[in-house]
Design a protein around this nucleic acid. Sequence first.
DNA 1: CCTACCGATCGGTAGG
DNA 2: CCTACCGATCGGTAGG
Lengths: 194, 194
Amino acid sequence: MTGSIPSFAPGDEGSSRRRQIMEIAARLFARKGYRGASMRDIGEQAGVLGGSLYHHIKSKDALFIELHNAALDVAELRIAQAIEGARDPWEKLERACATLLEIQLAPDSLTMPMMNDFREVPEDVRQQLIARRDAFEDQFKSLVAELPLPSGINRSIYRNLLLSLLNAVGDWYRAGDLTPGEIASQIVMIFRHD
Amino acid sequence: MTGSIPSFAPGDEGSSRRRQIMEIAARLFARKGYRGASMRDIGEQAGVLGGSLYHHIKSKDALFIELHNAALDVAELRIAQAIEGARDPWEKLERACATLLEIQLAPDSLTMPMMNDFREVPEDVRQQLIARRDAFEDQFKSLVAELPLPSGINRSIYRNLLLSLLNAVGDWYRAGDLTPGEIASQIVMIFRHD
DNA sequence: CCTACCGATCGGTAGG
DNA sequence: CCTACCGATCGGTAGG
């Protein structure tokens, strides 16, 4: 439909048909959540019946985990590239925030919006998602560690507040307002103390 | 089970049996989300079959809306009381944040954790919830309007960031860490600029 | 408040 | 990739 959709990690295994299904599934999970997107929904958009998807995937759980991890792989990579050229810790933080917001606020974002509703997911799936997300958040742990913050501020709290706030921007953002970069600038304005 | 549970708006109509059912439902919605908590689950904890609940309530939708609105009524009231004595705008903001966090982080919180998963809920229900939540957020709109912020900061963004961050504390907070008041203090430390 | 049920929907499978 | 189905679960109801 869109022709060009943000691709997952390069070197992805599987046929292009499989990747097409993954992209459809990602969009539906992002829009309707894990429970809200049924295999029959996904099949319908792919032009097949729900049951036919099981030739390409093992289970709904496995599909969701694969998408979630691939999305975090992409985000991690793009953030690493974005902060590469910067030396000032506040500049690095702002670039990381802007990149994450660009990903999350993309009109047909496949990636991060699903990072939230972990409560909708079966317990054993949730644990795998959390493990991957914790690794992702290490990137921000490093960024926050470099900041010259006042001594009264707890860096662990600071990081959690920042991350939860970044994850929630999609809930209130309406296109046509500010750009992701402008929002990132506002966030760093607020979080900046030195 | 707990003996004393935070009560809903005073002057609530209905029998004590009904209120008991509401409290059970609130706890389950808070823990498992709208879809995750079935009428049979609620019935089980109330000692009856799921179908029997329909003598006390009209529908699952109506039950959820009623609980959601009652929770916001209580929160609004408690916040208003908390900021009553304060004159400094930063002090008022910190008291409001601390109160909201106390409600959300209470060990068996019945109230706010459900404010999030709006995507799990049927479309027509969601619109009612959003309308009520918007009214609730006006309280913070006033608080933010009073703050002597630098001119570069967009107060609308500032308020959205603050609210989404407050709503998400329950996702990463683990009891035994800081108190709600200490977290509120950290939040205001970060959001304070004058 | 229960029995007994309804129609709908879910993830998933066998067998072709 | 479809047909045809499985067992489970859902919100909700009639009738007592």
